[in-house]
């Protein structure tokens, strides 16, 4: 596009080699113009709900006409997240995941996770877990102890003993069933899959892609 051309022409003097030839910049000119800072903001904001961010949304709202240099922009943004925030911007291609019902949607999804090299518990007092973290932990640990997949009924039976009833509105969680089967699933914390050939329909839970990368099974066992 013409904008990319205009960008490439704006080379700084430093990018001229010893023979006086214009050197193709490592960072393309249009990347110098593109405001990657806005994309960093966008990703931070979209990550508030912990629902993975679709490439299509990134292009539509921020990248727009610069979509042809999307890889370079993402490289720059990924580096910023690492260097400034200490966060890993990770791409999940769910087309290759086990979620067969979403197989046809070709999406590159990004999410943030933290690379904490510190020993466990040191900074724990500063980052407060909340009630949802507690609930998610319980469900993930049940799935883990059942070998990676568990029937929906087992989960609710256990939660019932913790005074959480799927049909009732909970003080902290509100509509628990919705939270667990919809929001946690959207966030890729859980997978909620129909068991084939069941009548009435039954579902099973597994760890979601996000949980796989963000949750430490070892630390769970140590509790």
């Amino acid at each position: 596009s013409s904008q990319v051309q205009r960008g490439l022409e704006r080379l700084t003097p430093a990018q001229v080699d010893r023979k006086g030839h214009k050197v193709k910049p490592v960072v393309s000119g249009s990347l110098l113009i593109f405001r990657w800072q806005k994309l960093v903001q966008f990703i931070l904001i979209k990550d508030q709900k912990k629902v993975p961010i679709k490439r299509a949304d990134i292009v539509r709202h921020v990248v727009k006409e610069y979509r042809n240099i999307y890889p370079e922009i993402m490289k720059r943004v990924t580096r910023t997240f690492e260097q400034v925030f200490g966060l890993n911007l990770v791409e999940i291609d769910i087309a290759h995941s086990r979620i067969t019902c979403e197989h046809h949607l070709k999406q590159n999804i990004n999410k943030l996770e933290t690379e904490s090299k510190r020993k466990p518990g040191e900074l724990a007092s500063m980052s407060l877990g909340d009630h949802r973290t507690g609930l998610l932990f319980v469900i993930l640990s049940i799935i883990f102890m059942k070998g990676g997949v568990v029937k929906e009924s087992v989960v609710w039976n256990t939660l019932r003993k913790l005074r959480v009833e799927p049909g009732e509105k909970h003080e902290d969680f509100g509509d628990v069933k919705k939270l667990v089967t919809e929001e946690f699933v959207r966030q890729k914390n859980l997978e909620y899959v129909r068991i084939p050939h069941t009548d009435p329909v039954e579902y099973e839970f597994r760890w979601g892609l996000r949980a796989e990368t963000e949750v430490s099974k070892l630390k769970m066992l140590q509790l």
Binding site: Q83, G86, R118, M126
Partner: peptide, 18 residues
């Protein structure tokens, strides 16, 4: 001056605490 791991830790805690 460049950020170090200490700065990043502090920033992450600021993000959580506000």
């Amino acid at each position: 001056r460049p950020m170090t791991e200490s700065h990043r830790r502090f920033l992450q805690i600021m993000m959580t605490s506000g």
